[in-house]
Design a binder for these strands. Sequence first.
DNA 1: TCGCACACCTGAAGTCAGTTCAGAAACTTT
DNA 2: AAAGTTTCTGAACTGACTTCAGGTGTGCGA
Lengths: 229, 229
Amino acid sequence: MTKPNAGSRAAARRRAPRLKPGVKKEQILEVAVDYFGRYGYEETKWADIAAAVHIGSTALYHYFESKQHCLFEIMAKTVGDYRQRFDRIVAEHGDWNDALVTLLVDSFDLTEQQVLSQRLMVAEFGRIGVQRSLPREEAARASARAQTRDLEFAWGTFLARGMQQGLLPESDPRLLTRAVLGLYNSVWHWYRPGGTLTLADVGPFYVSRQLAILGCSPDLAAAKFAAAA
Amino acid sequence: MTKPNAGSRAAARRRAPRLKPGVKKEQILEVAVDYFGRYGYEETKWADIAAAVHIGSTALYHYFESKQHCLFEIMAKTVGDYRQRFDRIVAEHGDWNDALVTLLVDSFDLTEQQVLSQRLMVAEFGRIGVQRSLPREEAARASARAQTRDLEFAWGTFLARGMQQGLLPESDPRLLTRAVLGLYNSVWHWYRPGGTLTLADVGPFYVSRQLAILGCSPDLAAAKFAAAA
DNA sequence: TCGCACACCTGAAGTCAGTTCAGAAACTTT
DNA sequence: AAAGTTTCTGAACTGACTTCAGGTGTGCGA
């Protein structure tokens, strides 16, 4: 015999209507970006995220093989999105200089959620280097890693093209890519949404310094900024 | 009654002679830098370090309140050492341009151990932001954090002086500091000792780009490098 | 309508690195 | 040699993550 109030409790705890398949996973990913990005990956307990989406902590394992698996999926998506924007912008701009400045400026045109993703990305980047044993987790890790490499390669190719066209001083495109992206990523180590500085303050400053790293004439930067404003 | 072979075993396991006070702790820190820097903080087990210095894992708690406490002490020391070099170089060079280039070049003149410390520093930097409860651990964390801030401030002051002297284009010294140091730190995310590139390859490239960020005339860089070589 | 497949979820139990604790051994000082 | 300090140990504890065995509900073909 069941407890007398079993039925009524079930009714009282009005079970939320079942969502479309896949929606819950998106919810989890969203909450995870928020928590991980805001409070740190280590600091947020896996169970906190479960609670935030109203499921028991073990239910998370229906969607992810592990906490890190979730992290890797976020990372892969983050790089993937960036890559998509990269490709689109390069394709849309025939003029190399146009493409360059648009790429740099666009990288700072982020929603709060995207900023949190970037913060998470740079903070936990080291993890994508170490192999994992769970199959889907490892697949996500490998994907994030491969996409990061591809993106670096794409940037290197893009910069090499600028050199060929005489728009950029010759130098090792790989090192130059690392420098430009390294400066970019360094922002997310200290920038946080809601601080005293906004992206509108930080972005232009960093873009001008990225152009300086590349060795573009400062005129280019000024001209393009004027055009954008 | 003790086991019959208790005495002989004790003799066989020839206990290493006791070291001077403080030496063991230095050993632990050295091994920790090596392991943490080479294989990652998370990946190396606290017990591995104990084994490497030939003590049981619980004996580590005689020297540190926790694994993180050890990490924080390493970080504090790393920043402290950098700061000392910074102050010495600034004091030794009356000419501001001299001081600047020396500072930048010197930052890449590191031993393997120092490179590992830098790798560890940038990889686990996020941790120095979150408060801890154990007293000595928290003290070490706060020290690492304060020293990092002080160093940024010292750099900012130094750069502001360059602007006053008209040797550097005017701009926000704090943002500029973050950009210059951000680019510097980004190296240690990918550089590892024993790779295809050496610091002799990477250093000059990055120094020239740091100078570009600062907006120094490229002549300065060239001239100083020639002098150094 | 039945029943089977599947997506979704749960409570209890397991694992493992890090940590605490009570005390012992070795060395120093008095 | 007694007292005190530093160094160290084995056994037990903790908490976050994970595994497992199974239960509930929804949709879909027979």
